[in-house]
Amino acid sequence: MHAPQGGLMVAIKATLKRDLTLMLRRRGEVLNPLVFFALVITLFPIGISPDPELLASIAPGLLWVAALLAALLSLDSLFRSDYDDGSLEQLLLAPQPLAALGLAKVAVHWLLTGLPLALMAPLLGIMLSLPAGSYAVLALSLALGTASLSLIGAIGAALTVGLARGGVLLSLLVLPLYIPVLIFGAGAVQAAIFGEGIAAHLAILGALLALALMLAPWAIAASLRISING
C-alpha cells in the first residue's frame, strides 16, 4: 500500500523539482529555442524587405509561426534524456498515474520554453515594427497558446521517443495539430492591431488549452507506454 492521498502530490512535486533542476543544469537547451526564435525573426526582414509597413502587416503571423517552430524544436528533447537513461521506465513503474506525472513534465517544458518565448516575443515585435497596443496581447496569446502546443507536442514526442530518427517524423505528426492554435493566436494579435475585441480569441485559446489539458495527458501516458514496452 502506497501513501493514499498525499502520494500523488508528492510525486508530482518531485517530478517538477527534478525536471526543473535537470533542465536548469543544461542551460544550452533552454536557451536554444530562444536563440532560434530570434534568428528566424532576423531572417524575415532580410529575406522579404526591411520596409517597416510591410513588416508590420505580417509581424503577427511571423512572430507566431517562428515561436511555434521554436517550441517544436525543443520537443524532441522532452522525453529523450529520460528515455536514454532509463528514468522514463521508472516513471512508468511508479504507483502514481502516469498521466499526472507526464503533465508535470509538460508543465516544466512550458515553463522553460513557452513562457520565455512569450516574454521574448514583444522584444522581437519591436524589431518587426509591430504596431503599438498589441504587445501585451502578443505575449498573452503566446503564453496561453504555447501551453497547448507543449501538451499536443508532448503526445508526438512520446510517440517518437523510442525511434532512432524521430525528429522529422515528430514535426510531421505535430504541426498539423498546431494549426487551430496558430489561427487563434495570430488572430488575437491581428485583432488587437485592428482595434477589434480580443476577448473571443483569447477565450478560444483558453478553451483549446482546457481541452488539451483534459485529453492530452491520457494520450501522452498511452504513447509513453507504447514507446517503452516496445
Binding site: 503526445i155 510517440l159 505528426l173 494520450a219 498511452a222 504513447s223 507504447i226 514507446s227
Partner: peptide, 8 residues
C-alpha cells in the same frame, strides 16, 4: 502508436 495518433 498509429491508433493513438488516429484518435488524437
Amino acid at each position: 502508436a498509429a491508433s493513438v495518433l488516429a484518435m488524437v
